[in-house]
């Protein structure tokens, strides 16, 4: 079964009565299967962020259908949509969006606090620790964001996205605020997670970053311009090794 199915999806923004209607998305048909690593590319204003918001159930389409794991999201009430965001989707943002003055561990625990059904605090904590270890930050659990580097903060955010074992990780310009080395580290982590079977959809406008994905979807003016596999994706790990060799003399 497809993980994401979008059928002639439209999202219009009205600019008031009688004003101009902005067509952020204008007929999107898209299908994503479990285990894919998709890069969505496009210039700013192309509609890629709107596409991302709808895919992440933060926004609803004006027209068309969106099925996530076969569930028609457009018909659900807000509480149920919140539950889907909680259990099926993990977000990674450009600006990390970690809670300030809150430890890495507690940041990762955040989605668990909103999970339906009760579980002991202890079990939740263990689950958060496991997610942090998975992104290589087992030794930084008690650090607050201001004590972590940008790359480390983004890894905490990825751990937070992973902690509820979602079906889909949505990353919006995940390397936008990072330098090249840290970006490569994050892409290495994404590729690792992808090899582990996790579905990743990443919005980016940098071709250098998109080349680490398996499939590239280009959006322009609210429509899909191009959609196809990336023939021979680069291995971030190797690029990172080469980059470090070049820069440590």
């Amino acid at each position: 079964m497809s993980l994401v199915v979008m059928e002639s999806l439209r999202r219009y923004y009205g600019t008031g009565n009688g004003g101009v209607t902005v067509k952020a998305l204008d007929g999107i048909d898209l299908e994503i299967h479990p285990g894919e690593f998709v890069a969505i590319m496009g210039a700013s204003g192309s509609g890629k962020t709107t596409l991302m918001n709808i895919m992440g159930c933060l926004d609803l389409p004006t027209e068309g259908k969106y099925y996530l794991e076969g569930i028609d999201v457009t018909t659900l009430d807000p509480d149920r949509i919140a539950e889907i965001r909680n259990s099926k989707i993990g977000f990674v943002f450009q600006s990390f969006n970690l809670l300030p003055r809150t430890t890495a561990l507690e940041n990762v625990e955040l989605p668990l606090l909103y999970r339906r059904g009760s579980q002991s605090t202890r079990a939740l904590r263990d689950q958060a620790k496991e997610a942090l270890s998975r992104v290589g930050l087992a030794d930084r659990m008690d650090h607050v964001p201001s004590q972590l580097s940008g790359g480390q903060q983004q890894r905490v955010a990825i751990a937070r996205a992973l902690v509820n074992r979602p079906s889909l990780i949505l990353a919006d310009e995940p390397t936008g605020n990072l330098d090249t080395e840290m970006s490569l580290e994050i892409m290495t982590l994404f590729q690792e997670l992808h090899r582990g079977g996790i579905t990743i959809v990443m919005v980016t406008h940098e071709p250098d970053i998109a080349r680490f994905a398996q499939r590239k979807v280009v959006v322009r003016d609210g429509k899909i311009l191009q959609d196809g596999p990336i023939p021979d994706p680069a291995r971030a790990e190797e690029v990172l090794v080469r980059f470090r060799e070049e820069h440590t003399l």
Binding site: G56, P78, A82
Partner: peptide, 16 residues
């Protein structure tokens, strides 16, 4: 505001 946005994104209901 940002914290609220994050909480909503990770699955907080309005009620929460």
């Amino acid at each position: 505001t940002r914290e609220i946005g994050v909480r909503l994104a990770v699955g907080a209901r309005r009620k929460d």
